[in-house]
Amino acid sequence: MSSAEPSLATRGLVAGYGDIPVVRGVDIEVRAGELVAVVGPNGAGKSTLLKAILGLAKVIEGQVLADGADITRAPLQKLVRLGIGYVPQTDDVFDPLKVRENLLMGGYLLDKQTRAARMEEVLAIFPALRSRLNRYVGTMSGGERKMTAIGRALMLTPKVLVLDEPTAGLSVALTEMVLTEQVRALADHGHAVLLVEQKAQAALRLADRAYVLVQGSVAMAAPAAQVLASPEMAEVFLGGQLKQQQAADQ
């Protein structure tokens, strides 16, 4: 699945906090139906890259494009109207609200009837949430909260979904479930998914393409399988993490 213009792209993006760049000249792109992973060691600037795309960190230079249109520095509430959904790493739900209310907030821009219909569609994607609709999210497990967060982001049927470490704090089993059953499935349903993930091995197994970010710059851009197989990436850029995981798998 590919289209003329990427659903989301950055061109020479330099971004950070104040005038200090954390992300340095990054070019990435993600297209409809594609799962693109951004991996790299701690402090590589992965989350800052996402925040810069979403108008939450300062863009010093470069551009952010959605379907070819310049959306650099656009505020988050405008991006959501352009079809870009976001699930932060932590604090990704409304704790004092019930699951139903979280989903209703996800569909805030929809009219009442469309919102109700869309909630049914989201519950079909996450059937486990149906029996928990009247539970306060603050009382739920990590996996249930993540389902609620992704479900909330899906309420507006975003063209692009930006996920910042959706498996942070989750167990191995839940990580597998979230990445396989939720994140991969989103791309298979036609969403363009940009995934930042600290658990590189798990992300690279499922992604179509990957960018390895090191010290704010793209060190490698290639199909995910190629990144996964690259001993150089495993050893040098991912701090031996991939190598250790590969050894453990064998």
Partner: peptide, 10 residues
Amino acid sequence: ANPVVARGCG
């Protein structure tokens, strides 16, 4: 509860 996510909902 969460102003950033609220903005992310539009």
